[in-house]
């Protein structure tokens, strides 16, 4: 007994020190993201349950086969969505670089990488707007599904309902992420962080932005790949 007490003198939970060793706002951002993860998880598991309970399901390679400015009837499955995925991954990378620049109190770097991140987010939103518009003009919307099942049988509206709800919810997260990033950029430009002496707000915005990328990894896999 005596030996263990001497080996662990830290007394993590006895007060006087931060047990998580992060600032309050960052911890709360983690908690928020955890609750958001459960929301998205509930959506995706509900989608999976309905898909498992259906005898047929549309072929994603048949549904998502078009590309902007491509000739009518072109067959390019997975191409457009891979472009969207790479846009989001790259914007996530520029976000980490912005956080990194913030650690070094490098205002110029923060501004540069935040602008790149915002452009990436806006490009992703543009791609999604094009895809939604394209699907809408093919007759797909909530409550209406023009696509057939993989085996040529009639498909229910579950497919479009889940697709528009989940990608819409994700797209709304991207949209709010872009707004948050724009606010961060303005705060960086007006020297708010320089006055505070730290760029911790960039880290919190970065956590949110990476979470949006993380959710897209799951949405991309569940809707477009498998």
């Amino acid at each position: 007994m005596s030996s263990t007490t001497t080996v662990t003198p830290t007394k993590m939970w006895n007060g006087g020190k931060s047990p998580f060793n992060v600032e309050y706002g960052k911890l709360m951002m983690w908690y928020f993201l955890m609750s958001d993860a459960f929301t998205f998880g509930a959506f995706l598991i509900s989608y999976g349950t309905i898909r498992f309970s259906s005898n047929g399901w549309p072929d994603p390679n048949e549904v998502f086969k078009s590309f902007p400015f491509a000739p009518e009837g072109m067959n390019a499955p997975l191409v457009f969505v891979s472009v969207m995925t790479f846009i989001l991954i790259i914007s996530s990378v520029t976000m980490v670089l912005a956080v990194h620049a913030g650690h070094n109190m490098d205002k110029k770097g923060v501004v540069k990488y935040m602008i790149m991140t915002i452009i990436g987010g806006a490009m992703f939103l543009g791609c999604q707007a094009w895809e939604w518009n394209h699907l809408y003009h093919e007759g797909a919307w909530w409550g209406s599904n023009p696509f057939l099942n993989h085996d040529g049988t009639a498909s229910s509206t579950n497919f479009t309902n889940y697709f528009f709800t989940i990608t819409g919810f994700h797209g709304f997260h991207v949209f709010s992420g872009v707004i948050i990033n724009i606010i961060m950029l303005i705060m960086a430009l007006t020297n708010k962080f320089e006055e505070r002496g730290h760029y911790l707000m960039i880290e919190k915005a970065g956590l949110y932005w990476h979470f949006v990328d993380l959710v897209w990894v799951f949405v991309f896999t569940c809707f477009y790949l498998i």
Partner: peptide, 18 residues
């Protein structure tokens, strides 16, 4: 997902409690 959470979101470099 692991690489995004561990490295981009920096979770791997936080302390074990978190």
């Amino acid at each position: 997902a692991f690489y995004i959470v561990a490295y981009f979101m920096h979770l791997k470099h936080e302390i074990k409690n978190l």
